[in-house]
Design a protein around this nucleic acid. Structure first.
Lengths: 296, 296
DNA sequence: TATTGTATTTCATTGTTAACTAAAACAATC
DNA sequence: GATTGTTTTAGTTAACAATGAAATACAATA
């Protein structure tokens, strides 16, 4: 009667998404085998997901005949509950920023503090290590690799991005889907029009991250892509809950839109130069009361 | 009576190294507290390491007085036995290259095939995932992200390095230790003089890797450093056991030595240009019978 | 007082088991 | 024959206990 596993939830979401993409109206039919194959997974979790959707009245099961679509729920954008590890990671980063964590922590301390099981705590620490935030001490424990609000670190990050990101759009295989450009433009325009609230900062950050990551993905070069993704993850940890003024949002969006225009026109060199100055400008912003800012 | 743990072995090594650096002659004295503090570790593993060294006759313990150095063993370069995970990782990569592994594997299969415990297999897979070699499948199992001998992948790697590595020496804080330059030069000269054998290829690869990683480390920018280190790890997996001709070694060493000269003279722009052409040339080398080559 | 010796505590790892999920094979039904 | 229903097998995860190592505190001794 429950919907326990993450995979099953994900698959339920993807089934809905699939129905929308295929334009399946009420009365259409699905089958377990096909969807399982299409989602690259076995029938078992698909069955569970369909059972769940049936319970919600989205579909109806017909014995030995198939699955009938009853209603197509509007894209409610039901967000999957974030995993405990993700939450703990953000909390940890936040506490660290605010000086609430010592320079060295043990696995057990992480378990206690964030109420995690051992495997989860290990996952968390491994991910932090991957982001170069912590390292294993020789004996027991982990050490943070930089001071809580490290201006220097921020500079390093920008220097690195400055080396990489302007190069993405000059890569041989660089190709942006027109649909991606359109969607990005729409999101940026909406961000410009929407009245600014502090609460928008997460959405704003994610839009930024998607922009930069999307460009990296468009190279078709996995190393560019994963380097940029890594930077995004890193910044996500420290920038999530910090506010910024509307002016910054405005400048940021305008610059992004400019890049999109030039990329659409095939003027990649221009876009590359814009990216360079975009990052340079963002890197030079002085830190105010806010310890950092997510622009870029 | 045994020397069980890795940490203790490492510490024994580092104590010897420390004694050499400090120029401790026979008859000098050590103390547990100091060395423990200096190595950033508690007294416990230091005691065990010293016990071991005492058993070997390197030092002698004097009750409540300290540790006397008896002989200073010449830098025998005792190599620590590589961890099971490392070995398995190389073996796995090798088998994969030779088409002996399917496109998808389960954790359990890795455990069986390489005779690993579960935690070790998990470590291995996590590391491969970190290198973008595999990814988790939606349900169970892992999927390799590229074909065994992927020319395209190699190109991507070079493109990425081409974006990063020539930038390292132009970074603001770039600083090479003179000692590092000297040591690197010596290693390269020796590689040029030593008669080439196939068995030298591992040492040659490691020299290359150290060269590139050392330059990245000299930026003081951890993102440059870890990006280059990641590339090295990746290439180590596929390039370890492949032979190459002496000509390539020669060209490679010569180019490296050229960069060292210019860096020593403070002509970083020249060195940067050399690095660019160095990577470009290496990337253009056609693959012969050997599936790849470690030059660069 | 500086040092090692010893004991205690905290911590991490490993191995084991149990619970449960996904995959795969097979059976049943329309 | 296509599809779901059911069973079996394989795989993964989480929880737990046991072992042993590292950190810490304390005692003993020169």
């Amino acid at each position: 009667m429950t919907m326990p596993t993450r995979l099953q939830q994900e698959i339920a979401e993807r089934i809905l998404q699939m129905m929308r993409e295929d334009g399946l109206a009420a009365g259409s039919w699905l089958n377990e085998n096909g969807t399982a194959q299409r989602l690259g997974v076995s029938r078992t979790p698909v069955r569970a997901a369909l059972d769940h959707l049936a319970r919600q009245g989205v579909v109806r099961r017909h014995a030995n005949k198939g699955i009938e679509v009853i209603t197509l729920p509007s894209s409610a954008e039901r967000v999957l509950p974030p995993e405990a590890v993700d939450l703990a990671m953000v909390r940890l980063a936040h506490e660290r920023e605010n000086g609430l964590l010592p320079d060295e922590v043990s696995e057990l301390e992480v378990m206690r503090r964030y109420d995690l099981g051992r495997p989860e705590a290990q996952k968390l620490l491994a991910r932090l290590a991957d982001l170069d935030m912590v390292e294993r001490k020789p004996g027991y424990g982990w050490r943070f690799l930089h001071a809580p609000r490290d201006q220097h670190l921020r500079d390093e990050s920008y220097r690195f991005r400055l080396a990489i990101e302007p190069m993405t759009m000059l890569e041989p295989g660089f190709h942006l889907e027109p649909g991606w450009i359109a969607e990005m433009r729409a999101r940026h325009l909406e961000a410009l029009q929407r009245p600014w609230r502090e609460s928008s900062s997460i959405a704003f950050y994610e839009m930024n991250a998607d922009f930069h990551e999307g460009l990296a993905a468009a190279t078709g070069n996995r190393y560019f892509h994963s380097a940029v993704r890594r930077q995004n993850q890193l910044r996500r940890l420290s920038n999530y809950d910090w506010g910024l003024g509307f002016e910054r949002v405005q400048v940021n969006c305008t610059e992004h839109l400019g890049m999109l225009d030039h990329l659409e026109a095939g003027e990649n060199e221009v876009a590359s130069a814009l990216m360079r100055s975009h990052l340079l400008r963002a890197s030079k912003l002085k830190l105010g009361v806010q310890p950092d800012e997510p622009a870029g």
